[in-house]
Amino acid sequence: MSEVVARLNELPALKNEPLLLREVSSQLFWGMSKVLDKRQALVAALLELDDCPFPESPVQLQVFLPPVGFRGVLFIENLMSYDRAMRSGSTALEGLALAYASGFKGSAQRMRTSDGCSLFFSDQGGDTRDLRDGFKAWLFGKGTQPAYFWGDLDWAGMRILAAMRASFPGLTAWQPGYAPMLAALREGQGHSPEAAEKQGQKALAHSSCPYADEQLAPALRDTGRFVDQELFRP
């Protein structure tokens, strides 16, 4: 413990350095980058500041843009499903920008700031400056196009949906993707939580998305089974 305190006492020397939080942690704690994760309040208190001066690592967001512009944005939970959707040409995806950020990272509120998000645009879609600027304007709060989420039909997926609604008000579960998954679940398909080592997932009381709360969550409770996104193509 005394060694940890000694390391924390070195924090003021880094106060004005342009470092990310994990870089600070690595420098202080013998190369361990995650020691200060979720401890921004402690850092701020030790430095006698209102807020932690060291930002978290930017969220890396992969984006596919339709060549003719987008009418909405679909966040996809799993990388394989994102890649399939990007290449599918399905009419269900027509006019949708597709976005992928690993797991719960898509719900991070810093993703809606230019400093908190690194964008990587796919060469499979439109890649003009106007298209990129249009997406950035939407992401950073100036666009009005609706947002959707499509992921695994399990409690973790429902929690990602609920968390993303805090960053993207009005975001809803994407019905063209979830409808066949819901039908499969009601027909007795899917798997038990234990079969996929998901038994630790806790049920979600509500997500505030009507479709999820009225259709998806009740089916999860009634069947006690989950369906993975990768089984389906939009």
Rank of each mutant, 00 (worst) to 15 (best):
Gln189Val: 04
Ala212Gln: 09
Gly224Met: 13
Ser90Thr: 11
Gly151Ser: 10
Gly31Asn: 09
Leu20Arg: 01
Phe29Val: 00
Ala44Val: 11
Ser33Val: 03
Leu96Ser: 07
Ala196Trp: 11
Met164Trp: 06
Leu153Cys: 12
Val43Glu: 02
Asp152Pro: 01
Ser57Cys: 00
Asp51Gly: 00
Asp213Val: 07
Ala212Thr: 07
Glu48Leu: 15
Trp155Pro: 01
Arg110Ile: 02
Trp174Thr: 06
Phe149Asn: 05
Gly125Cys: 11
Pro176Leu: 14
Asn9Met: 14
Val5Glu: 15
Gln201Pro: 02
Tyr148Thr: 10
Gly116Ala: 05
Pro18Gln: 03
Ser207Val: 12
Ala163Phe: 01
Gly177Ala: 14
Pro210Gln: 06
Gly69Ser: 11
Leu182Trp: 07
Ala205Glu: 12
Pro180Ser: 14
Leu65Ile: 06
Gly116Glu: 15
Met158Pro: 05
Gln40His: 13
Glu94Ser: 13
Pro58Cys: 00
Pro55Thr: 00
Glu23Gly: 11
Gly106Glu: 03
Glu77Trp: 04
Ser207Glu: 06
Ala97Pro: 13
Arg233Phe: 14
Cys117Asp: 08
Pro55Glu: 01
Gly69Tyr: 03
Pro18Phe: 02
Lys142Met: 15
Cys117His: 13
Tyr148Val: 14
Gly95Ala: 03
Ala44Met: 07
Glu94His: 10
Gly31Ala: 07
Val68Thr: 11
Glu230Ala: 08
Val4Thr: 13
Gln27Ser: 12
Ala163Val: 07
Ser122Lys: 04
Phe120Ala: 09
Ala212Gly: 03
Glu197His: 13
Asp83Tyr: 14
Asp51Val: 07
Phe64Leu: 04
Arg233Ile: 15
Leu46Ile: 12
Gly134Ser: 10
Asp127Tyr: 03
Gly72Met: 09
Gln124Arg: 14
Ala147Cys: 14
Leu98Ser: 01
Thr113Ala: 00
Arg112Gly: 05
Arg110Glu: 03
Tyr148Asn: 06
Thr172Cys: 11
Ser102Arg: 12
Gly126Cys: 02
Leu8Pro: 05
Asp37Tyr: 02
Ala13Glu: 13
Phe140Lys: 03
Ala108His: 05
Thr144Leu: 10
Pro234Ser: 14
Ala184Pro: 06
Gln60Leu: 08
Gln199Tyr: 00
Leu20Thr: 02
Lys198Ser: 08
Cys117Leu: 04
Ala147Glu: 07
Met80Glu: 12
Gly157Thr: 12
Pro66Gln: 05
Asn16Arg: 00
